[in-house]
Simulated assay, not measured.
Amino acid sequence: MNGAVLVCLDKFRGSLTAAQACAHVVDGVTGAGGRAVAMPVADGGEGTVEALVRAGYDEVRVEVAGPTGRRVQAGFAVRGGRAVVEMAQASGLDVLPGGRSAPLTADTYGTGELIRAALDQGCLDLVLAVGGSATTDGGAGLLRALGARITGPSGVPIGPGGAALTGAARVDLSGLDLRLRLARVTLVSDVDNPLSGPDGAAAVFGPQKGATPGDVEVLERGLRRFAEVMAEETGRDLSGEPGAGAAGGTGFAALAALDARRASGADFVLRAIGVEDALREASLVVVGEGRFDEQSLRGKAPIGVAEAARRHGVPVVVIAGDIRLTPRRLRDVGVVAAWSLLERAGDLDTAIGQAPALLKAIGRELVTHVPIVVAQGG
């Protein structure tokens, strides 16, 4: 291989961060005498700030409310007047105390605190990267942190979480931080779901956050009610807009109250970290994530890298924890070889426990031969 191996892995959920996964493959390549460059990727969810910091952004750390109100440390990425707020750091599944879900009460107040901290840094180009949230509160908590009031029939503020939205009678946005009037807000996500309905935030994503069928019904009622009172306040109903259902409806709050524009999370991150430039020096690109399946092909970061590599004529291989695509489907998207940690390890526990060693071994194999066929399991 003449050029470097460009390693662009996303997170292996439950096992390794994107940066850790990339580092193990790079170790294998360099240990076998090859050259490799780690470029962790993300699609607007977990790992977005980490990827940007590696690409030259500065990180600002602050203490904010977690999804259940317990204080957590969270960070956002800053370059010039731009701040990238990763919702998962403040309101994500990974920061739930003890990993215990709270589908009815988890809220996004901490994400609003992150936005306020970014404004305090003088940033008026605000990028809200959503994904991996523990919440289904329609972004109500985020708006409260920025100065909005959401009250019940008696004028008393409602409680946190999506269930409390069923009692919402009025939204007052007049107290929103005045600096937001000068700011440009971009919502980045790989989700185009509406706020409510069978394809909405509660029905589709609620169960992933621990919601029972009964919980989903409550959350659905809350989101519909929130959309109604928000429309009364703003004069427009954006609940059906693509992306309104992102991150438990946080997309809705950004679109309806912060006048956000929507962009692909993967496209934003890949541009920001300079993937196109890195491809000019690469002879092989490694993409992948914990599970590589049809969902990976719908706007996720790994397939974004693969598409860019094809434009540059650079071959692409996949390394993933589990591969749910057929060899033919992989070839259709330009993948010349693939390795599944699950197939190689034989069972899930081994694949997770030995992921670092497995990734390093596959990195060595990338140097010893140029892959030309799909070879799941190695």
Rank of each mutant, 00 (worst) to 15 (best):
A301G: 08
V318Q: 13
R298T: 08
A306T: 06
A306P: 01
P327C: 02
R324N: 03
L279W: 00
G304S: 02
A320M: 00
V317L: 06
L284Y: 11
D293K: 09
V316R: 04
A308S: 05
V275N: 05
G304A: 01
G288T: 06
G313I: 05
F292D: 11
V317R: 07
L330A: 12
R329E: 14
G304I: 01
E276V: 12
A320T: 11
E289C: 06
R271W: 10
V314N: 11
V305T: 10
E281A: 10
A272S: 14
V275Y: 06
E281T: 12
D293W: 10
V287Q: 04
L325P: 08
V314P: 03
V318P: 12
R324Q: 15
R271N: 12
L297W: 13
S283R: 14
V314R: 11
G274W: 05
G290N: 07
S296I: 10
D322V: 02
L284I: 08
D322Y: 00
V286K: 09
R310V: 08
A308M: 14
G304P: 00
A301K: 04
A301N: 06
R291I: 14
P302G: 05
G290L: 07
R298F: 12
G288K: 04
L284R: 15
L279I: 01
G313Y: 09
D332Q: 15
L297Y: 09
A301T: 08
P327T: 10
V275S: 07
P327A: 06
P327R: 10
I319G: 09
R271A: 09
V318C: 15
A320E: 00
E294A: 15
A272Y: 10
R331A: 15
A309Q: 01
D293G: 14
E281Q: 12
R324H: 12
I273T: 04
L325Y: 06
G313V: 09
G299E: 07
G304L: 04
D277E: 15
E276H: 13
D277F: 09
L325G: 11
I303G: 00
E307D: 13
A306E: 05
F292P: 05
A278H: 11
I303S: 07
V287N: 04
T326N: 08
Q295M: 14
G304F: 00
A306F: 08
E289D: 08
V305Q: 05
I273A: 00
I273R: 07
P327D: 08
R324P: 07
V286R: 07
